[in-house]
Simulated scan of single mutants.
Amino acid sequence: MGSASSARASTRVAPASHAASPVVVAAAPRCPASSLAAPVVWGSSAPQRPLPPLRAPPCRATLDSPEIAPLVEAMVAARPAQTSRDQLTKCLSLIDDINSKDPSQVEWGGKRHPYRQLFGHWLSEQVTQLDPGAPDELFILARGKNIESWRLSEIKRDDYSPNSIGQKQWEQDRKAWLARRLTDVMRSAGYSEASSKLVEDFMLGRDLPDPRDVRLYDVTGPMGATNYRLLELLQMVQTLRDAEALVFLDKTFPRMFEELPADEVLAAVKRELAGVSKKCLATALSKPWPPLARKLLGRALPAPPGWGDVLREVEGVAAASSHPGDWRYKDFDYE
């Protein structure tokens, strides 16, 4: 009774003689201390405690995210069955014939091989292992993205202005030359203009979506419709990245590990693994690496997407930064 009467007394309105004094509405008793807000005062100029800003959760996702991965699986299952790929075989043969004239020869398997032809085969094999039902354009890119690239030396840097604008134009012209050379081979094999345009976009890095920055509303439409065309394009970009990273780990990483300092090898591996998928990482870690090489690969693994946002939420902005002003560098001797 005493507690109930005190609770009722705390909510009574002040008498008329005290109408000028502010009216304080207190919180109800027996509430947890953590849920009590500051008293709300009417008729007073007391400063109110501002509410903390609401931080919207990041909407960035990848093809491995739980909301996107089922759509990718459905897209792969909905692909038409591949009965015959005679046109692809013809195109790849034309690319191999051109790259067989590569003056750069490398030793592999006890034999001398044209380097660009061998690299194209390595990349095609990785694409086949990662996505055997991929479109023809992806296999053509894997086999011929460096087609006849030894002739790029004919595009002289001295023919362009000696500034950053000239440098960018020179690099763009080199890419355009490779793209034009590869699309000419595709037309000779009988591919359509749409397929040639897609390969050209890949070669020039033009209008390509980023599989590390895809959102659910990008690939879905009203009434549950799914943009399978965009999903296929995202999958092609991701598969090509994964294949290039696996070729690097298979062919280049072991020699780098034996001949270069560990910090240089670590930086190179981090660059190669920066945009790969979970499937690529699982494939890389399943290989029989020596203990030290496996330890270095473990240090080079990329952080999960959104990890910086997690650190900022848990430990503050400084914890998610590598700037020397970070609290972790407070005892660092800069001299």
Rank of each mutant, 00 (worst) to 15 (best):
S195V: 04
G316L: 08
D333N: 08
R55H: 14
A77S: 03
A19S: 15
V269N: 06
M75G: 01
D97M: 07
M186C: 13
V13D: 14
L285I: 05
A26D: 02
K175L: 13
P50A: 15
E258I: 00
G224A: 10
K90N: 09
K145D: 06
A61D: 05
L281Q: 13
W150N: 09
A194T: 12
A61S: 15
S65R: 03
P209E: 05
S321Q: 08
G109E: 10
W307Y: 15
Q129R: 15
P304C: 00
R312Q: 14
A61T: 03
V72Q: 05
S164E: 14
W289D: 03
S124L: 10
D218Y: 06
L285M: 15
W122I: 08
H113I: 03
H113V: 00
A61H: 04
V185S: 09
A46H: 11
W177M: 09
I98T: 07
Y228Q: 11
T220K: 04
L88Q: 07
L94K: 07
A33Q: 11
L130V: 04
R255W: 03
L234K: 05
T252L: 09
K101E: 14
P132A: 12
A20E: 09
M186N: 06
P32S: 13
L281N: 03
Q105M: 15
R151Q: 13
L297G: 07
Q82H: 06
A20I: 02
V106F: 10
R299M: 14
L216R: 12
A319V: 06
P324T: 02
W177H: 12
T183N: 05
R229P: 00
Q48F: 03
F257R: 09
V214R: 02
P254D: 05
A319R: 14
W42A: 15
Q126I: 04
Q126Y: 10
L204M: 15
N163A: 06
E125L: 05
L130F: 12
S153P: 02
K101H: 14
V314H: 02
E258S: 03
L240V: 00
W327G: 01
D184N: 11
E232V: 01
F257A: 12
K251V: 14
V214Y: 05
Q167D: 13
L297I: 12
L92S: 00
T183D: 04
P29K: 04
V127R: 08
N227M: 02
Q105S: 13
P58H: 07
V310S: 10
P222M: 08
A16M: 08
C280D: 10
A274F: 03
H113A: 02
R181M: 00
Y329T: 01
S21L: 15
D64S: 13
P53Y: 06
R181G: 01
E67C: 06
A274P: 00
Q126D: 15
Y228R: 13
D250A: 15
A61E: 11
W327R: 12
L51N: 12
G298A: 07
